[in-house]
């Protein structure tokens, strides 16, 4: 039988955490799209310690699947990024779809459109909504203003990455605290597709992720600490001038207030800088020493 289907091997990694009723329709939609366009593909479902019926219902749906579905059962709830890293490590495809959520505000055709965009020479293709929440806009605004990357990050519904991109980002760092930023910083070509809509899902732990990402992938933290240092220097100068003025005008007994002022302001500043240094150090320790960032309980493959 000859088909016009694409010959490249596709992996689709899907993050699941208590997705309940949404999981099966999502996989049905995904399978229909992949079946229509690709000869060979695999599905990887990362079960981030689901406690509802997500896994049983999906297992039931997958019973007669002619393509392999692999479950990665995480030992405990670890949130999006470590789980998607695990999924990425398990995927064997030449092209890997990353679905961070089973929320689908985009038309299904966008899935294949992303692949076609990738074939046009883009190693990373993000599919983004045209409307985003205020907090997201703020984060990406700060991020993009301070990052070294050639590409601006946006809120995205899912993305497609090539094996080359995966290898590239893993070559620079074993573990990716924030995949999107790592891709953007990989130096490979990136493209965005936009659909009209908005993502309703709010990822858990996104605030600490945002803080980590800003510290790791941008120089925002560095800028702030430099700013504080400068302000402190200015304060110290003002103090110096004040001390000189007091000394010259001949009332040196007023030293108590001055000393207290220097001590409090100075120490507050020093501690602020120290906090940032500690943040950087903890991130470095994290990156260097914690090679296995996720705990896998079992790998389960389902195929008819």
């Amino acid at each position: 039988m000859t088909t016009n289907k694409e010959k490249n091997f596709i992996s689709a990694v899907v993050y699941l955490h208590n997705d309940g009723a949404r999981a099966v329709p999502f996989f049905q939609m995904l399978k229909a799209q992949l079946d229509a366009h690709f000869e060979q593909y695999e599905l990887v479902a990362v079960d981030d310690a689901c406690t509802d019926d997500t896994v049983p219902s999906l297992r039931d749906w997958a019973k007669d699947l002619d393509k392999p579905l692999t479950f990665l059962h995480m030992s405990l709830y670890q949130k999006l990024e470590p789980c998607m890293n695990a999924g990425l490590d398990a995927a064997i495809g030449d092209y890997v779809y990353e679905f961070d959520t089973t929320d689908t505000p985009y038309p299904p055709e966008m899935i294949f459109a992303a692949y076609q965009t990738a074939l046009a020479g883009n190693d990373i293709v993000s599919v983004c909504p045209d409307r985003v929440k205020g907090s997201s806009r703020l984060f990406y605004g700060v991020f993009n203003a301070n990052s070294h990357s050639a590409y601006a990050l946006r809120t995205d519904a899912f993305r497609l990455v090539t094996r080359r991109a995966v290898n590239r980002v893993h070559a620079s760092s074993e573990h990716l605290p924030y995949r999107k930023a790592a891709y953007a910083a990989s130096g490979l070509k990136m493209a965005d597709l936009t659909f009209s809509g908005q993502i309703r899902d709010k990822a858990a732990g996104r605030f600490s992720l945002a803080a980590d990402s800003l510290a790791l992938y941008t120089n925002a933290g560095f800028k702030v600490s430099v700013g504080i240092a400068l302000v402190m220097m200015a304060l110290a100068l003002v103090e110096l001038i004040y001390t000189v003025v007091v000394f010259c005008t001949g009332h040196p007994v007023a030293g108590w207030t001055t000393t207290m002022f220097v001590l409090t302001v100075g120490f507050a500043g020093v501690f602020a800088v120290l906090a940032m240094v500690v943040k950087y150090l903890s991130l470095l320790v994290d990156l260097i020493f914690k090679k296995q960032k996720y705990l896998i309980e079992s790998v389960e493959k389902i195929q008819k």
Binding site: Q40, P68, D94
Partner: peptide, 10 residues
Amino acid sequence: WPYMGQLARK
């Protein structure tokens, strides 16, 4: 083969 080959290729 498509799967096993792909796995080894990776």
